[in-house]
Design a binder for these strands. Sequence first.
DNA 1: CTGTTAGCGCATTCAC
DNA 2: GTGAATGCGCTAACAG
Lengths: 337, 337
Amino acid sequence: MAATIRDVARQAGVGLGTVSRVLNNSPLVSPVTRKRVLDAITELRYSPSQIARSFASGKTLTVSAIAPFFTRPSVVERLRGIESQLTASGYSLVVFNVETVARRDACLQDISRHDRCDGVLIISLTPREDELLALHEAGVPVVLIDTSAAGMHGVRIDDVSGGELAVRHLIDLGHRRIGFVGDSIEQARAFNFTSSRDRHSGYRQMLAAAGIALRPAYQRHGVHDRYDARILAHELLQLADPPTAIFAASDTQAMGVLEAARDLGRRVPADLSIIGFDDIDVAEYLGLTTVHQPLFMSGQRGAELLLRIIGGEAQESPSDVLPIELVVRGTTAPPSA
Amino acid sequence: MAATIRDVARQAGVGLGTVSRVLNNSPLVSPVTRKRVLDAITELRYSPSQIARSFASGKTLTVSAIAPFFTRPSVVERLRGIESQLTASGYSLVVFNVETVARRDACLQDISRHDRCDGVLIISLTPREDELLALHEAGVPVVLIDTSAAGMHGVRIDDVSGGELAVRHLIDLGHRRIGFVGDSIEQARAFNFTSSRDRHSGYRQMLAAAGIALRPAYQRHGVHDRYDARILAHELLQLADPPTAIFAASDTQAMGVLEAARDLGRRVPADLSIIGFDDIDVAEYLGLTTVHQPLFMSGQRGAELLLRIIGGEAQESPSDVLPIELVVRGTTAPPSA
DNA sequence: CTGTTAGCGCATTCAC
DNA sequence: GTGAATGCGCTAACAG
């Protein structure tokens, strides 16, 4: 059916190795021979088999990315960064979408079987001790995006500082009653997510630094989506002494808070200030004040780093920390009371 | 380094083929032998090389998806459907993101070189005549999603009907001055997108059927994003005799129209009705009236169909047409004037 | 039921 | 510079 390297060799009247050399741009071929081979290739419409090539060389020119809930805007944006970098380097991207804990574990196990891909990018999922060990033992190049782990390369932001940044903004505006809406503790633990937890730490630290007492009732946790966030915000707003501002651990959750405010007739930001996190695409549309993080860049940098590791370049910095930035839009203002 | 099938055979004291049979769940192995092999596998921590396996069998257990602008919510949702179906069948998904015409052409050419993957899913991009020929000649199984082409399998909706559905809703409400905001003609042609074009046809046909004259000034085209749509809607609304309703060819573009209305102080739906298309996630959040299409299902069905074709099951129906549905929310109402 | 054999298409040694 | 020879790890077809 399809022409093989042998056909090309025969057609060009050269040896098999010579064709291979031409394919791999080896300089050890005379211009005349090269042309003859090239002509044979065009004539036969020959195209080298990638699988055979991978098999013989041991390199697949493929990278896997494991992402939880890859429909989340923040994740998609990271993936776009990854894909762009990979494509530029001639690599392909295999995507694994993780929506259950079982699949999380399965994916993390599977990649210890170093096949099919030259390296792995793990987004937002932090490997556990045993998984770390297996990964190390397997020797698969791995780069973590949006997390970090001992002895692993990674690209991330400082979520604690991010939480502090958000809450400091609210405090600076004069707020003292500040609520928090973040990820469900159980779910975060099951998937081993860390960002909401760390942003929550930043929240607590900043309140403490400002001498504001922590109120358990002000801190709510639910599934990472609009619906749960909306419910939690309802609870918060119907407290006898409701917060005047709410820090949501993500823009998606901030959208739920926004809905709750609308439901209850609270004006934003007059009656309630809301700040999110991530600065996803719709944040600008909604005029949402948030903490910006370079999502696309995180993917790009992560892929770049992984490619360097695959290429054998030893990397010093275990974890690359990207800058974050407060973006003030229309959902935060001084408290009216 | 890593154990091979040969090591396992030696360890278990059996032949090479027997190990292979066990790996492939062949029933032609006695329980005793099977157990011995399985034990050897665990002992050696053996894991078969996928690349070698692909090479020998000719099957890669991998499917490629080519998607334009894969950060668009509608595309992501389709990809999620694809991934879910593929994963359930033990296949991996390689993603190609197309954001330029050059890359569109390159991707479509590349897949004619039937390597690395067992089949291809093409989202929203319609192959041209010559590309169709090359694809056919290469014999790569292909399924089109959100488009169709002669002799190609596909999963799609009827965009013309969708456009009619949207416009009929506006007419039923009493609107006569109905604007249209859709994709740039040049861009659509360059990428060979068809959905906006077809929805526009539906718009024209429905107006004609209702005896409403087409007004060129009411029909605007721009890049498929919020920003351009916003500008176009501005133009529309500042006409001497502005439309009382606007049909946007996608929810994303409807968001831009919504912004324009906000900019100009037009109340929605009192002063201006807006209807979108796709029913992406935020549509519900925004209370946007729109035409719902089963995005996730399109991916799922497409992948399922492709897998069947790869499996050698001849398929009759060239194109699977999914149902669409009008979803009335808060952005449409009878005209006030 | 099981062991043996022959490639899959290419990269990578080697000799020449 | 070039051609020929080996083997990557596995599946499939064949004898037993």
